[in-house]
Amino acid sequence: MLSTDSDILAAAESWRRNGRAVALATVIETWGSAPRPVGSHLVVDGEGNFLGSVSGGCVEGAVITEAIEVIEAGAPRVLEFGVADETAWRAGLSCGGRIRVFVERVE
């Protein structure tokens, strides 16, 4: 892992300070063999630049898309990914686990 969760929160603060639109995604629940533990963060800006991870790379694309929508709409969202939700989300976790991710805008 290249960035610790501390680095990611520090990046979120500095990106926002620099005037970028920022959303923060946090793993709030996991079941089965989830790749990243509860509390893991991913920070996303309005252009889709990101730092950190909420999975082993399986669902980051979908989280980034949702994060950009959260930046525009303002209201936080809870996303769920896993084998059971492949039809709903297209993105799935190949490891067979399930995760729930909270996405919020940094005001």
């Binding site: 929160l9 603060e13 919020e104 940094v106 005001e107």
Partner: peptide
Amino acid sequence: MRAETLARL
């Protein structure tokens, strides 16, 4: 999240 809360954290 408010930027101020993030900064305090």
